[in-house]
Design a protein around this nucleic acid. Structure first.
Lengths: 338, 338
DNA sequence: GTGAAAGCGCTAACAC
DNA sequence: GTGTTAGCGCTTTCAC
């Protein structure tokens, strides 16, 4: 590995001068600068970022912790962060938390050990206190998809409740009166918020949702399929189905098809997230758009700003809104229910 | 930030002793060890990995460069690497190359600057010479999904040609004789290999593939849709369609449906990759499984081994095979062609 | 405009 | 069993 000393020796200058040239600093003669540049080129010298980090106390690195990168929601999140990182010349360090509190903590610690300037954390299971303590210790920590009032300034989140309300109202406006809901078995945060939004909107419209019409399952395709099978087995009648996410919505459609029901003719289905997969199914899925890439980009910028403790903190919230993507899985309700 | 010196001072020992305790090294008295451990705990001391890296000349970090993390194929790849990394206590550094040669090189350089021990590279566009030079400079570099004979030892790849042959033979065995192919517009490596495999198998079975029956487009859903529209517009008749990947296959099915054709009754469709999305569409897609997660896991292990230059290199190849996942998009050919 | 030197946090060889 | 010390590669202050 060629070091700054090697360059200095070959160019016949001090390491200080080489450092100046590398950083395009002033106070270097033109001839000298040219010579040093040439040597750097010839030797293929590249500064060791670990050494730089040691003295600069900053690594120009942004860390990301998400449950599982292979899920396209999180891959998209990572992409948003990466875009911001690239623009600001930061590196990306990533870690999967695998939906486990302990490995989430391990992941964060490992990022801290590396002295990441900024950390973007998607945490579903750690409790608020843990997160607040963490935020206290790490200036550049930003939570994505979670809202904790005490550290509102560090939370970039989506208004799940209002998104759910919007979806529900959309279905009501289409004339639907018989609803069913497929939600995640983990009743933390998002699922709860969304179900609340649905219930409130229904009530507001003098419609009701039977407890039996809410089916819980794991938040994936299989879960959605299973949930609808249960609904059908229980004899629940509905013309409109709200799913926790696109994956569950698609699983739900499979179950509906298998039961001889048509989407949207017999049952209208609405998803959540607007993943690429929502365009793969037939009919294409009407869904609530989750602007996760923009949010992640924004979160990364925010985290970088916060990490610079010399800057004043503007104490504001960072709330994003969802909007509906109309495709083909919803139509007007027929007068006669199925 | 609390440093090793702080711990040493508070515990009334030297930094060497603290270091020994941190690494569970010998030559430390029991009482002393306990005291130091206590202080570490109280102060919340964590070693600075940058400083460690500087002296150890190793970062315990594995870098990954893929085109775009938001595509689930690459997210899955990243997961495979991460699994291996976690097991061996390595950190993950990630970078998107965005399908551009220059940002691919930037990404690799940035990983090198960080002194990553191992690097997993998914490169589609860099030429062989560049890659060979790179491999020369970086002992822990492993190429995934690419085969370059000169550095066979560093390539973890899938036998695309034989996978394509297998898919084609499968269709032939189902009685199909009229084929069409939807492939990627970028005729580099994989697409070429797969089309070759298809042609060879057809020829072997005394079947032919008209040039007009091969449509090129971008390798996504929209591309697949467009490609089939072209095929149909040209009046090509086929009962079996081989797509470059699942995304294109699904787009193709959309186009088929829109033209009033049924899958699989009128046209059997086969994909490639076996992404989650292959189970989202209707009918569920029969496809060639690409074991990318296992491959990535394997590649990470290989890269870590190679990075230890003290170990002897075993000069072998790392070839993975694909197998067919039978779902619902393929049936036996009818006697009368559509 | 350029260089000498201190020091970032840590490890490891060596001394005691 | 424990401490001293040199040095990893780099930046930056201070002289000159």
């Amino acid at each position: 590995m060629v070091t700054i000393k090697d360059v200095a020796r070959v160019a016949g200058v001090s390491t200080a001068t080489v450092s100046r040239v590398v950083h395009n600093g002033g106070h270097v003669g033109d001839a000298c600068r040219a010579r040093v540049k040439k040597v750097i080129e010839e030797l293929g010298y590249r500064p060791n970022t670990n050494a730089q980090a040691l003295v600069k106390k900053s690594t120009n690195t942004i860390g990301v912790v998400t449950p599982k990168l292979s899920m396209s929601f999180f891959g998209t999140l990572a992409c948003g962060v990466e875009k911001a990182a690239k623009e600001k010349n930061y590196k990306l360090l990533m870690s999967n938390s695998m939906y486990e509190t302990q490995s989430e903590i391990d992941a964060i610690n490992s990022l801290r050990d590396h002295h990441c300037d900024a950390i973007i954390l998607h945490s579903e299971y750690s409790d608020e206190k843990t997160l607040i303590d963490l935020a206290d210790k790490i200036p550049g920590l930003v939570l994505i998809n979670r809202y904790i009032p005490k550290i509102a300034n560090r939370c970039v989140w989506l208004d799940n409740e209002s998104a759910a309300k919007q979806a529900t109202q959309y279905l009501i406006d289409k004339g639907h009166t018989d609803f069913a809901v497929v939600t995640s078995i983990y009743q933390n945060n998002d699922p709860m918020l969304r179900v609340n939004g649905i219930k409130q909107t229904l009530k507001l419209n003098e419609l009701s949702l039977n407890k039996d019409a809410i089916a819980e399952a794991t938040a994936n395709m299989e879960g959605g399929e299973q949930a609808v099978k249960e609904l059908l087995a229980k004899g629940i009648k509905f013309t409109a189905l709200l799913a926790y996410n696109d994956l569950m919505a698609i699983g739900a459609m499979h179950a509906l098809f298998d039961a001889g029901l048509r989407v949207p003719e017999d049952v209208s289905v609405i998803g959540f997230d607007n993943l690429a997969i929502a365009k793969a199914c037939r009919p294409k899925l009407t869904t609530m758009h989750y602007p996760v890439e923009e949010m992640a980009y924004y979160a990364a910028e925010l985290a970088i700003n916060l990490s610079d403790t010399s800057k004043p903190v503007t104490n504001r919230t960072h709330l994003f809104l969802s909007d509906i993507i109309e495709r083909a899985s919803v139509i007007n309700a027929k007068n006669n229910n199925c």
